[in-house]
Simulated scan of single mutants.
Amino acid sequence: MWWIYALLSAVFAALTAIFAKVGIKGVDSDLATALRTVVILVLAWGIVFFKGSARHLTELTKTNWAFLILSGCATGLSWIFYFKALQIGRVSWVAPVDKLSVAIAIVLAVVFLGEPLTLKTALGAGFIILGTLVLIA
């Protein structure tokens, strides 16, 4: 089931690039990112309240809070740089470079989370890097 969510994530990420490229034409990329963030904020909290998940807020630990805040900061910076890159670059170049995050995440997961680096995973990350280089060269 996880792969269905991952595939949907990839589809919506692709749509994000296309919609954003059109939407940021003639607009400051930081303003566009802020507007997008408000939409996401409303959508995410709407889902939380609709599902009744808000009642679990009190169950979050200090560690949960700290790392979710760090994750939010990383996401925000990622979006700011992504929108700026989309504004001045081609989607067919920006999107593949952005997807290098997959290979970077694999390395970080091995180093910081102790996840195993199998030959298959290493080859996959290598192919992502190689594919990115082919697409942007």
Results as ranks from 00 to 15, higher is better:
Gly131Glu: 07
Gly52Asp: 03
Val22Met: 12
Gly89Phe: 01
Thr33Val: 09
Gly23Asp: 04
Ala95Gly: 03
Ile106His: 04
Thr118Cys: 12
Val102Pro: 01
Ser101Glu: 12
Ile128Asp: 05
Cys73Glu: 00
Ile69Thr: 09
Thr33Asn: 05
Ala13Pro: 02
Ala109Tyr: 05
Gly26Glu: 09
Trp3Val: 15
Thr33Gln: 02
Val22Leu: 13
Leu133Arg: 01
Tyr5Asn: 12
Gly26Asn: 08
Ala125Trp: 01
Leu123Thr: 12
Val134Glu: 07
Val22Ala: 14
Ala122Val: 06
Asn64Lys: 01
Lys51Asn: 05
Leu41Asp: 02
Gly23Val: 02
Ala6His: 04
Ile128Asn: 02
Pro96Val: 10
Thr121Ala: 15
Val134Arg: 07
Val91Gly: 07
Val110Trp: 12
Tyr82Phe: 15
Lys84Met: 09
Ile80Ser: 13
Ala14Ile: 08
Lys99Asp: 06
Gly126Arg: 03
Leu70Tyr: 00
Leu77Met: 09
Leu86Thr: 04
Leu43Glu: 09
Ala122Asn: 06
Thr33Ile: 00
Val97Ile: 14
Ile106Val: 15
Ile104Pro: 01
Leu41Ile: 05
Leu123Trp: 07
Ala105Gln: 04
Ala137Gln: 06
Ala44Phe: 12
Ala105Ile: 03
Ala105Glu: 05
Lys21Leu: 06
Gly76Ala: 08
Phe127Cys: 11
Ala44Leu: 12
Ile18Val: 15
Leu43Trp: 11
Gly76Met: 03
Trp93Gln: 14
Phe112Ser: 11
Thr61Arg: 00
Gly124Val: 11
Ile128Thr: 05
Val22His: 11
Phe67Cys: 04
Phe49Gly: 00
Thr61Asn: 00
Leu77Arg: 00
Leu135Ala: 15
Val38Asp: 06
Leu8Pro: 06
Ser9Leu: 13
Ala17Phe: 15
Glu115Gln: 13
Val11Glu: 06
Lys51Ile: 03
Leu123Ala: 14
Ala14His: 08
Leu100Met: 12
Thr121Val: 15
Ala32Leu: 04
Ser92Trp: 07
Ala54Thr: 02
Trp2Cys: 10
Val134Asn: 06
Ser29Met: 04
Pro116Ala: 14
Trp79Ala: 10
Gly89Lys: 01
Val22Gln: 12
Ile88Met: 08
Lys62Gly: 11
Ile47Val: 14
Ile24Ser: 10
Thr37Trp: 03
Gly46Met: 02
Leu133Val: 11
Ser78Arg: 01
Ala20Trp: 04
Leu43Ser: 13
Val91Ala: 13
Leu77Gln: 01
Ser9Phe: 14
Tyr82Ala: 10
Ala17Lys: 01
Cys73Val: 15
Phe67Pro: 02
Tyr5Phe: 15
Val110Asp: 09
Leu133Glu: 04
Leu113Tyr: 09
Ser101Pro: 01
Lys84Gln: 14
Gly72Gln: 05
Ala32Thr: 02
Phe12Gln: 04
Ala34Phe: 07
Ile104Thr: 09
Ser9Val: 07
Ala74Arg: 00
Trp3Thr: 15
Arg55Lys: 14
Leu15Phe: 14
Ala54Leu: 07
Ile128Tyr: 06
Ala6Leu: 08
Leu130Ala: 15
Gly72His: 03
Leu7Glu: 04
Lys21Thr: 07
